[in-house]
């Protein structure tokens, strides 16, 4: 039995619900660390950064599911919904940390930042684009929309990923490597999706 077969077999047996439990515990743990000083002397920034980065990691992970199935025949599709919903949770918490703890509800400054600061504008676009995705991440919504329309709507995830990658790159000073790696991974994962279907046969 090949490695791929083994992974697929394991995936058939392992349910998705433990991902939700672990995924919800992570921000609880981060918040507790931040409050107790374990995240350093600037806990607000640390919490903001970590939540944002975990959100972005899950967004990238979610984008991996389809190419993995198509090119490596590894089928992890049953976990994709939990990955996406947790990404949404982290990005909402990332936003709330910024609004409540960092800005302390300075509404004028918050609105000014969203309108005037391109990196925050882009981040907000990504967050807003996640809302319809999260709202339709259930079987009832799929039935209600019909599979084809639902699939089309889910393409918003590409916008979410691009917004997230650009948001991260735009907020850093100088040229550290990490944001480039994320944006590169996102662009790569989007690029493989435009490879025509029949090229798979040639491969």
């Amino acid at each position: 039995m090949t490695l791929v077969d083994r992974i697929n077999q394991a995936a058939r047996r392992l349910p998705a619900w433990p991902i939700y439990i672990g995924g919800v515990l992570l921000p609880v743990w981060l918040f507790w660390q931040a409050a107790s000083g374990a995240l350093g002397v600037d806990p607000i920034k640390a919490l903001e950064d970590r939540l944002g980065l975990w959100g972005l990691k899950l967004i990238v992970a979610g984008l991996c599911v389809t190419p993995l199935r198509r090119f490596a025949r590894v089928n992890l599709i049953k976990y994709r919904r939990s990955i996406g919903l947790l990404a949404f949770l982290y990005i909402v918490l990332h936003f709330l940390t910024w609004l409540l703890l960092d800005l302390g509800l300075r509404w004028e400054q918050a609105l000014g930042d969203i309108i005037k600061r391109p990196f925050i504008t882009v981040g907000m676009v990504g967050l807003l684009a996640m809302i319809p995705l999260a709202l339709t991440s259930n079987d009832r919504a799929i039935r209600w929309l019909g599979s084809a329309r639902w699939q089309k709507l889910q393409k918003l995830a590409y916008l979410v990923a691009l917004s997230g990658g650009v948001h991260f790159l735009w907020l850093v000073k100088a040229w550290p490597l990490e944001p480039f790696l994320y944006l590169g991974a996102i662009l790569g994962l989007l690029a493989v999706r435009v490879i025509p279907k029949r090229s798979r046969l040639a491969a």
């Binding site: 002397v41 920034k45 960092d102 300075r106 930042d113």
Partner: peptide, 13 residues
């Protein structure tokens, strides 16, 4: 980013 306000390090969460 705005320069209107600042976070004083050491203020906690």
């Amino acid at each position: 980013w705005s320069q209107a306000s600042e976070r004083r390090i050491g203020g906690g969460l």
